[in-house]
Design a protein around this nucleic acid. Structure first.
Lengths: 262, 262
DNA sequence: CGAGTATTTGACGAAGCTCAATACCTGTGG
DNA sequence: CCACAGGTATTGAGCTTCGTCAAATACTCG
């Protein structure tokens, strides 16, 4: 039986990317995390218009942030993997202006906003780290927007695969150049702002160029270098401490998150 | 000669949307704001790849956050108006993963990150308000992404006009249903992810429906109700304290930003 | 007036959408 | 084991939105 500690471990791993955590800080977080819950694939875990009293931490599974037009067209604006806070911003900003849905079966834990309030008062440095977490989330949203607006189908898909590879690698969920990504072509189209039919054709394009294999839930990168080149991928915006990709070039001298905190 | 106090006033007005500021907090901010600078239209004020030591406050003018593809195609992902912090996130997150350009002649002031650090330690509540400011910025980026991904030209332009109207109204820069917006069709196309030619045709579409007038730098809304309807516009994501539009419906019971702070 | 920029128009091509049909895959009950 | 149901992937055909190229028009400033 997975215990609460699994949730805390995921959270600690995520946050310590942005700064070391003391024993007291770790304990404070551990005390704040609720028991885990399961959420079925396709069910919403946070609803647009609601004013949450706690934030949701994703322990396992794939989730997505989305908005819908009145005709029911869905646009996914972020994907979340294990270790991600899916709605930390709801701590300070309510009501929700989007919903969050479990794409595969998810395990989540909650942290009450009262606890976040206490933690960030008592441990200002940890509060900073939480702030930074929301900033990285915002930076990823801007990059997603850039991709949706300026890339054609194949480039965009290549970009998404690069991003998901690095994010999953960071949390230890890749196997060589292969990883589990339970996105149907319909969901993928909602990420790329493409119809299902065209998503299928875009995927065939990358397959025929021997860039990726995508079989059911399993994605395999066949040529990382060419994939990065096609995507014009630069992972700076992911704010990862190590250059996680096999050959990824990060621009900029040194990655210095929160240098004013040092 | 506009003095430094102009900058502080704009900043105070902006931040007090999210919470009242005490005299001490106001003074701390005033002490932190530098003298003003001018930045010519078309010049960058913050560069991708750089690691700023201060954040830039826009006092007057129009600025835009953008990314460019290798072939030089530009995507604007945010617009900034008077009173906006254009890169508050660089306080904690460096290096920049995008640039910010003056679209018209801009007046700006700087706040050193060392000062932000001191302020947020000394006045935790004000620190929270700054955090919230970055969250609202992130929320606007997600909405922009939604719009780019899911709206056709005319609806998207209508949405942009609705947003800019409310944001400019909030800082007192509208005259009835008319406002100054120095965006050429080329720049507008970079916002909407459309070519200049098509942007022109989209604009003619809204004009021929008698929804807007857009003459040089001046935009006039001719029928707010129908414009909102076309755009499916819901201003919740702007987090404005009052329902600023002539007839805008905000969804959600009460706008409660930072309710955990109360 | 003349240069430079911004807007507008026309014609044609490319990217992507919709509709419709077909194939495939997986789990269920008989 | 098979048949079936429901979801997912794939293909083709015709259409829409939007891009590119090229040219003409208008506006602004010196």
């Amino acid at each position: 039986m997975p215990t609460q500690s699994t949730a805390v471990q995921a959270l600690i791993r995520k946050l310590s990317n942005y700064g070391e955590l003391s024993t007291e800080e770790t304990r404070a977080l551990a005390d704040a995390v609720s028991a885990q819950e399961q959420i079925e694939a396709g069910k919403d875990m946070v609803l647009e218009g609601s004013s949450p009293t706690h934030s949701v931490l994703l322990i396992e599974g794939l989730a997505g942030r989305y908005n819908m037009t009145e005709q029911g067209q869905t646009q996914i604006t972020s994907l979340f993997v294990a270790g991600d806070f899916v709605d930390l911003q709801s701590f300070l900003m309510k009501p929700m202006d989007h919903s969050i849905r479990a794409i595969s079966l998810c395990r989540v834990a909650n942290i009450p906003h009262t606890a976040l309030n206490r933690i960030s008062e008592q441990f200002p440095r940890l509060g900073r780290i939480l702030w930074l977490h929301t900033l990285v989330d915002g930076g990823m949203a801007r990059r997603w927007c850039f991709a949706v607006g300026s890339m054609l189908g194949p480039q965009h898909l290549a970009h998404l695969v690069c991003e998901m590879y690095l994010r999953l690698k960071q949390v230890g969920l890749v196997d060589g150049l292969s990883f589990h990504l339970p996105l149907t072509q319909a969901r993928l189209g909602e990420c790329l702002a493409l119809s299902v039919v065209h998503t299928n054709r875009v995927m065939q394009s990358l397959r025929s160029q021997s860039l990726i294999r995508w079989d059911r839930d399993r994605v395999t990168i066949l040529d990382w270098e060419r994939l990065v080149e096609l995507a014009e991928f630069d992972g700076t915006y992911l704010r990862m401490p190590d250059n996680a990709g096999p050959h990824v070039a990060f621009r900029g001298e040194t990655l210095s998150y929160g240098s004013t905190m040092a």
